[in-house]
Design a protein around this nucleic acid. Sequence first.
DNA 1: CCTGAATTGGACTTGACAGTCCAGTTTTGT
DNA 2: ACAAAACTGGACTGTCAAGTCCAATTCAGG
Lengths: 208, 208
Amino acid sequence: MPLARNAKPEKRVLTARGLATRQRIVAAAADLIYAASAERVSLDEIMEASGTSKSQLYHYFSDKDALVRAVIDIQTDRILQANSKFLGPLDSFEGLRAWRDALIQANRLGVSGGCPIGSLASELSSQSEDARRTLDQSFLSWTAVIESGLSRMKARGHLRPSADTKTIALAVLAAIQGGILLSKTASNSQPLEVAFDMALAHIAQHAA
Amino acid sequence: MPLARNAKPEKRVLTARGLATRQRIVAAAADLIYAASAERVSLDEIMEASGTSKSQLYHYFSDKDALVRAVIDIQTDRILQANSKFLGPLDSFEGLRAWRDALIQANRLGVSGGCPIGSLASELSSQSEDARRTLDQSFLSWTAVIESGLSRMKARGHLRPSADTKTIALAVLAAIQGGILLSKTASNSQPLEVAFDMALAHIAQHAA
DNA sequence: CCTGAATTGGACTTGACAGTCCAGTTTTGT
DNA sequence: ACAAAACTGGACTGTCAAGTCCAATTCAGG
């Protein structure tokens, strides 16, 4: 489940304490960045929130960009995990509705923040080619998770064999992202609900 | 067509020269912000791009936020105008496809930038309640333009009377926004195409 | 043509922020 | 136990950005 992406050793060895500090930094940075944006969060704020010092930040990350990359990774993992919980065992339209309800519920609680990945994609992908590629991978993984759920439904005979699950999954993710953006801007979960329902209806059009 | 929103006089009187300078500033700021983000564009860059000085910026705008608000307004006007060209006279599914093609074509040319309104919404709506409301209005206006096109199609008998044009319009806009975001991140227009096609199929489901 | 308002130039202030440096402390392997 | 390596503290630097200030110039209308 975890992405094997950040395999490049930022530092050779990490003791248990060092690893804990690193994780504390990334977690604090992820929360702060989710509440604002990568640009608007300063290292000083991350230091304070994580109870660390400048030298610790630069001990574990070569610069702020590297820390932001780690934040992208952790947010991607979180989202894939949350979605896999519903899409992994998916095999019915009922399961799709459960997924829908959970995602909308989660969004209702933190409407103001939007989607962690979506927000980072909007902010960073026109700024750093490196970040853009990483975030593209995140979306691809997310699409793959959706697609595997749809494939399972197809295997179970709930979708026609002709259904292009890959394309459908991409359209579904687009609807979700757009819905979240509009809901965040409207401070209202209706746009996401409406968009998600359209996506589910689109899937239903390929029902066997 | 132009939004009557910014009616609050930032300065009492404006001579022709003053108005021209003001517009030059907003246009330059809009371009720079579209290429990067409001946060990352400095007033110095806007000065240089528009051939103005600090005192001119603060003569026409109380602060950077006010300038950004003017940028939101102009970008909203541009988008509404471009979309109205297709949606105003809309009365057939052919017209919808023409709109689709135009929007996708426009996006292909500037994939890296995404949607000017969408990007600003993602950046600003969690940062300034004022900006959030303004951008919400922008999306509402955009939805209204789409909805009026759908209403016309309904009046012409192309859509069933039971079709909820308002909800459909909202879902369509969500698909567009999500599609643009994914396309920008992927540097590839396919996600937008796929999302837009889903939206058109959704409309077609309500065909008479 | 002349007077007050509109407009412009650009130096200056203040603060914030990323990144550096080095000295000190703790942990790990042997 | 004891070196080497991992880890930590925090002062310091350089840069850049928003916003201020005041004096100079141009313009419109009587």
